[in-house]
């Protein structure tokens, strides 16, 4: 772009040009091209797949769509998914709040190691996340024979599914809250304590109002993953229709049976969940940006 060199190298040139171009920013043509390429990329990789889910689900009309959703196995899968999330999310919520309290409000040795360990499940492949529970509780494990003798089924049953879900969603709330609470510091809590509040009062009346939107944000992401997890749950589920199939696993079975309309119908519910998650997440980010994300990176 020789025009810009002219602006920069010889100062009077600015006056000679009819419309001085700012030093920053690309020419409108380059700008339009960049925006265009980015939008086409996003269209191909994000928008069209999303649209395709709803199209494939609905292109034979609402009848087959609703039939697929009210079918007993689909309902059972929905219930199981809700149940797994209903156990995993509260557990990881309590953990996240406790972990961020001790990490953000106190200084102690080994803190960064603890933070790294909390993030660990994110770097483990979902399949391995499920597999560790098969090794721990499966028929070939040390306690496998004992479990079988006492007729306790963990793998290929509900407990295994819940455990795998808890594992993969483990860091979500903690990793949102730790930086947020670290940034908020301890001044307000210390003031409350000095003014005579008990520990619990300090937490519920000072800390909790400060972190509530951050908590909601973490729970939202945690829930989306809990309901959508596929790999880990697939390893421990055993794929028994109507019994140990979660919604994503039900989608897989229907798809492999070439029952595409039903597969996409169930998938459309999960896509809807993803969309709701994105909308609420964006609203939280726009409305309460300062109370969700620590500005420090």
């Amino acid at each position: 772009m020789p025009a810009e060199i002219v602006i920069a190298s010889t100062a009077p040139a600015i006056g000679q040009r009819s419309i001085p171009r700012p030093a920053l920013g690309e020419s409108p043509l380059v700008k339009a091209a960049l925006i265009g390429v980015a939008l086409v990329f996003l269209l191909l990789f994000l928008v069209i797949p999303l649209v395709a889910v709803f199209y494939e689900a609905l292109h034979q009309g609402f009848g087959p769509y609703f039939d697929a959703l009210v079918e007993p196995d689909a309902v059972a899968a929905m219930e199981l998914t809700l149940l797994a999330a209903a156990v995993a999310v509260p557990l990881n919520l309590v953990f996240g709040v406790a972990a961020s309290w001790c990490i953000a409000k106190f200084e102690f040795r080994g803190k960064s190691l603890l933070i790294t360990l909390i993030d660990l499940p994110f770097s483990v492949s979902p399949v391995i996340s499920g597999m560790v529970f098969v090794l721990l509780f499966g028929a070939q494990s040390w306690i496998g024979p004992w479990l079988r003798a006492h007729d306790i089924q963990i793998i290929f049953a509900l407990p295994g599914i819940v455990m795998a879900t808890v594992f993969v969603t483990f860091p979500f709330v903690a990793r949102e809250l730790i930086p947020l609470m670290q940034e908020q510091g301890v001044d307000e809590e210390e003031a409350a304590r000095v003014l005579g509040a008990s520990g619990w009062q300090t937490f519920t009346r000072v800390t909790l109002p400060n972190i509530r939107w951050g908590v909601l944000y973490g729970v939202l992401l945690c829930n989306a993953r809990a309901m959508g997890e596929f790999g880990a749950v697939s390893v421990v589920s055993g794929h028994i229709r109507g019994e140990t199939n979660t919604m994503p696993l039900h989608v897989e079975i229907l798809y492999n049976e070439y029952n595409f309309v039903a597969a996409f119908a169930v998938a459309s519910l999960l896509a809807l969940l993803a969309l709701v998650t994105l909308v609420v997440k964006s609203l939280l980010e726009w409305r309460y940006a300062d109370q969700i994300k620590a500005t420090r990176r």
Partner: peptide, 17 residues
């Protein structure tokens, strides 16, 4: 906001789509 879709969309749904 849409850039986060792959985080939110269950992987199996992305896979079949």
């Amino acid at each position: 906001a849409l850039v986060d879709l792959p985080f939110a969309l269950p992987t199996a749904v992305a896979g079949i789509a």
